[in-house]
Amino acid sequence: MSEHVDIDKQVRIYVTVFVSLFVLTIVTVAVSYLDVSVPVALTIGLFIATVKGSLVACFFMHLIDEKKIVYWTLALTVAFFIALMALPLLTSVADQVGEFAEVEAHEPH
């Protein structure tokens, strides 16, 4: 965070972020009781969690006003993180393709 900051303004932002996080937590719980399909529930739930996480990172962790080297370091981390998350999904897709090919091979032509 830059050296010259208006602390009173910062504190007002912190309190606003805290209230937002609290409200979003209630929204997350409320949404989980909605009668929607699993993929829709997952999308909504993870979207709200991402918004909450961004609020914490940007304001509590001061990422909104940080040096470039931190952004570059985090960008690299995000790239590896996405690769890590994609691996199990790719494995799942590969399994399904394999099963499909197996069924095709055994079907009489």
């Binding site: 997350t28 989980s32 739930g45 969690a49 909450k52 914490v56």
Partner: peptide, 13 residues
């Protein structure tokens, strides 16, 4: 931040 993701993933979804 980690808990913000653990909470919905385990308890709600």
């Amino acid at each position: 931040l980690v808990w913000i993701f653990l909470f919905p993933v385990f308890y709600l979804l």
